[in-house]
């Protein structure tokens, strides 16, 4: 895939899905501890999300870093907005900010 095609694909995923996690592996089988940690936070928070495995496509793995100007994976997006990686998501969950953002953006949760 050319660079623009990848960026367009990322944009589409982020536009069409309320919560998107670009990660290594899948939500069921994360291939990296940092991705696994974010999956766990989202599960605990009761958030339904789409996990996109960057390991399936090297151009996606590089493209997502350019898209957000962020050098590492995982990357969490809520309603089109880049939230952060593992450190930020964990800190925000611990402080209650993540719930706040989810409420503000009207993201449904399951108990």
């Amino acid at each position: 895939m050319s660079e623009n095609v990848v960026i367009d694909r990322i944009q589409k995923e982020v536009d069409e899905n309320p919560v998107v996690l670009f990660m290594k592996g899948t939500p069921m089988f994360p291939q990296c501890g940092f991705s696994a940690a974010v999956v766990q936070v989202l599960s605990e928070a009761g958030v339904k999300f789409k996990g996109i495995d960057v390991l399936t496509d090297p151009s996606l793995r590089e493209g997502i870093k350019q898209y957000s100007n962020w050098p590492t994976i995982p990357q969490l997006y809520i309603k089109g907005e880049f939230v952060g990686g593992c450190d930020i998501v964990r800190e925000m969950y611990a402080s209650g900010e993540l719930e706040q953002v989810l409420d503000e953006k009207d993201v449904p949760r399951v108990a």
């Binding site: 962020w70 050098p71 952060g84 930020i88 800190e91």
Partner: peptide, 18 residues
């Protein structure tokens, strides 16, 4: 913000991260 802080550090360590 958290993002701004991390971006600042990423920029300083861009060679190492690459």
């Amino acid at each position: 913000s958290r993002l701004e802080r991390q971006r600042l550090v990423h920029a300083i360590l861009s060679d190492e991260l690459a």
